[in-house]
Amino acid sequence: MKKVTRTLLVSACLLGAGPAMATTLYDDLGGKEGIAVVVDGFINEISYDQNIVKFFAQTDIKRLREKLEEQLCMVSDGPCEYTGDSMEDVHAGMQITTGEFNRVVELLQNAMNQAGVAYPVQNRLIKRLAPMRPEIIHR
């Protein structure tokens, strides 16, 4: 019996070291619920920022929330597919400046702070969103 337990323990440890237990950024963000809290806070932060909220005057907020949740889920290796429009198409004609882009990054950071997302986890999400900047600014 003892031997069986030990074997089980050993294989559990081996599994633990393997991919079965590896957590994704999605998990570290708190999964679906965690991302929903971040997106909600993010939209709320945008609504408080006079310089940014004006971009969203005509926006369907329900759709924005849904697409942002999908996108954050997907880029963080969660089980979702992004069904929104391409970043180029969405932000075309907005003439978003580098400063406005940074401001939106700060609003996302604020939202993640409020949601209690740990600093290194925040950084990993920012790293995955940062490459989208050329598709978003000056268009």
């Binding site: 408080y48 920022d49 006079q50 310089n51 400046t97 580098t98 400063g99 406005e100 940074n102 401001r103 990054v105 700060e106």
Partner: peptide
């Protein structure tokens, strides 16, 4: 926020 915040962005780098 619209009433109290500054009219334009000033220190926009991170």
């Amino acid at each position: 926020a619209g009433l109290v915040s500054l009219p334009a962005l000033a220190d926009s780098r991170l």
